[in-house]
């Protein structure tokens, strides 16, 4: 669906991403993990077509990303933002309807169709925002707002979801809700998701695939079992960790060892 080959991104004499190869497959969640400054967010921006000058290739459904126009990229790739700038009052429904822009037939104009409303209401239900759909966005709590952002991304019906540290500002219950939503999408609709996150254990539970980045390079890639080993994690994060099996899920559980 979406793949990057030998991707290198450099600016201001710094190389943010170097020779990175990555492939997103339908139905799979790929987590990108790495220390700060490893180039994770830059990678995400590049995959969305936001960085015009890159060396290497990014292919979307077999087509080079540079050749596609903004609107068709948006129909295929949706970015779930971390937060919204809400300087003007807007209701939840209007906000979520924003996700339908990529499907508008006229360029900057046009009115929402019946289908647009159907899709928007469906995702509002899916994200449990039905009772809030007429409320103003800045009246919502942080968690509710995050769900609205998720809803907007889902409203685009894009098969590829990019999430940049989506759980950063969420409490436990919301973290679980969000990632469950993503998981459901991938399972039921065969979407692919790329999640940049610091939360290794969450990634271990939800991701099919984890890529570890350091200094712009994809150093290791594989299933959580394969890459979440003490040796690899120490190499990446330069910290000692304990990896054991999660008592309930059976998957790897990572705990850093901070010697006193």
């Amino acid at each position: 669906m979406l793949e990057a080959r030998d991707l290198t991104i450099a600016y201001d004499h710094r190389t943010a991403v170097a020779d990175l190869t990555l492939s997103l497959k339908a139905g799979e969640i790929t987590a990108i993990i790495g220390p700060n400054g490893a180039g994770k967010s830059t990678l995400l921006r590049a995959l969305n077509g936001q960085i015009p000058k890159v060396a290497g290739v990014i292919m979307l459904d077999g087509q080079p990303l540079q050749r596609l126009n903004r609107r068709s990229i948006s129909r295929h790739i949706a970015v779930v933002a971390q937060e919204a700038e809400l300087r003007f009052p807007v209701t939840v429904l209007e906000f979520v309807l924003g996700g339908r822009f990529a499907w508008a037939t006229n360029s900057g104009w046009g009115w929402e169709t019946e289908r647009d409303l159907e899709v928007a209401n469906a995702v509002i239900n899916e994200t449990e925002l039905r009772d809030l759909s007429a409320r103003l966005m800045n009246e919502l709590s942080g968690g509710e707002r995050q769900r609205a952002l998720m809803a907007r991304a889902l409203a685009t019906e894009a098969p590829i979801l990019l999430l940049d540290e989506p759980t950063a500002n969420l409490d436990l219950s919301h973290q679980a809700t969000l990632l469950t939503l993503v998981r459901k999408r991938c399972d039921q609709h065969r979407s692919a998701a790329l999640v940049v996150t610091h939360d290794i254990n969450l990634a271990a539970q939800f991701a099919n695939n984890i890529t570890l980045m350091k200094q712009g390079r994809a150093v290791h890639s594989g299933t959580p079992q394969e890459v979440l080993t003490p040796e690899i994690l120490q190499e990446i994060f330069e910290v000692r960790v304990l990896v054991d099996a999660h008592p309930i899920t059976g998957g790897p559980r990572v705990t850093p060892i901070i010697s006193a």
Binding site: R70, I73, S74, A81, F88, V90, G98, F101
Partner: peptide
């Protein structure tokens, strides 16, 4: 400007978000 109103609606909520949702930000 009215014909660009929908793009402006998205731009009003953030340039990055507008870009992600399909608006040609530079052109608008």
């Amino acid at each position: 400007l009215t014909l660009h109103a929908r793009s402006l609606n998205l731009l009003m909520l953030g340039e990055r978000d507008a870009f992600d949702l399909g608006v040609e930000v530079g052109r608008v």
